[in-house]
Amino acid sequence: MTTKTEVKKFLNYLSNTWEQVVQNEEKSIDKATELIFDSCKDGGRFYIFGSGHSHMVAEEIYIRAGGLAYVKGILPPEVMLHQMPNKSTYMERLDGYAKNMLSLYKVEAGDSIMVVSNSGRNNIPVEMCIEAKKLGANVIALTSMEHTQSVSSRHESGKNIYEIADVTIDNHAPKGDAAYRIEGVEADLGPTSDFTGIGIAQSVIIGVISRLKEAELEIPVFKSSNLDGADEYNDRLFNQYYGYWK
């Protein structure tokens, strides 16, 4: 098989995976947008958290062109990948960390939070869901149902995030995430959780903005800082939505 043919085959693999999201997740995405809209219109915020590679989904909708200013990313560097290999993997299995993060970021009753975790089994994302619900926040899980239903929780509750959340959105990634095969290559390839996760996260933002428009409420959306005149516009949103903590 030529390189060109293999690339085309993988592109079709991506397309088929995304089609599963399109066919199956519209209702769950709509439920999530309803919860987030209710938070925004009542003066709350939409928080998003992911560790390891899942942090990229959180970062995708936080302070960027087309991004909604109600979004607050919970992005502590300790659970990202840029500092040291495997650090985020070990950190994600600690107890007590998520509860402190929710306190630091001032998550409150009436807010909404999306927790992104492909396996949905590790201590921090599970604790994030449990403690956010205790605070009275709406909890949305973005996870792989194929993966999470095939593994046990590492948290003392015995639950994975989909068992705690008010709404669960399936990213339709396979167990282990990387599952594309090339003959003669030992390891699985082509993980899809961030590919579909980013599309889902952006779909949620579009849904929330649509609801804000229907309700005739302010729609605070950032412009690209590389467009002329955008800096002044964006600075106003930064000052209004990020110049203080609730």
Score class of each variant (00 low, 15 high):
Met84Gln: 12
Glu25Ser: 00
Phe37Arg: 01
Lys9His: 12
Tyr97Arg: 05
Asp170Glu: 09
Leu227Glu: 13
Glu214Ala: 13
Pro76Lys: 04
Asp177Ile: 03
Ser15Thr: 10
Ile61Trp: 04
Tyr105Pro: 02
Glu216Ile: 01
Glu216Phe: 01
Thr3Ile: 14
Leu135Ser: 11
Gln23Pro: 00
Val116Asp: 04
Ser54Leu: 10
His55Gly: 00
Lys99Ile: 09
Phe222Lys: 00
Phe195Glu: 00
Ser39Val: 11
Glu19Thr: 10
Tyr62Thr: 15
Ile124Phe: 10
Ile169Asp: 08
Leu35Cys: 08
Ser152Met: 11
Lys134Asp: 02
Ser15Gln: 12
Ile29Tyr: 00
Glu60Ser: 15
Met101Cys: 12
Thr192Glu: 03
His53Gln: 09
Ile74Gly: 02
Leu189Asn: 12
Gly44Cys: 08
Asn160Met: 10
Gly229His: 05
Ile48Glu: 04
Leu102Asn: 13
Gly136Leu: 04
Ser51Val: 03
Thr3Arg: 05
Lys134Ala: 03
Met128Thr: 13
Pro125Thr: 10
Thr143Tyr: 06
Gly67Val: 08
Glu146Phe: 05
Tyr105Gln: 12
Ile182Thr: 07
Ile209Arg: 03
Ser15Trp: 01
Met56Thr: 03
Ala173Glu: 01
Met101Phe: 11
Thr148Val: 07
Asn160Ser: 12
His53Val: 06
Tyr47Leu: 10
Leu237His: 09
Asn12Met: 07
Asp38Met: 07
Glu186Asp: 14
Asn100Ala: 14
Gly176Gln: 07
Asn123Pro: 00
Ala58Asn: 06
Tyr241Lys: 12
Val116Pro: 02
Val116Met: 09
Ser112Thr: 15
Ser144Tyr: 07
Asn234Thr: 10
Tyr242Glu: 03
Gln240Ser: 14
Ile200Arg: 01
Gly43Gln: 08
Ile205Ala: 02
Glu232Thr: 12
Leu102Gly: 11
Arg121Ile: 03
Leu135Pro: 06
Ala179Gly: 10
Arg93Ser: 06
Ser203Glu: 07
Ile130Tyr: 11
Ile198Val: 15
Gln202Val: 14
Val22Arg: 12
Ala32Lys: 01
Ile130Asn: 06
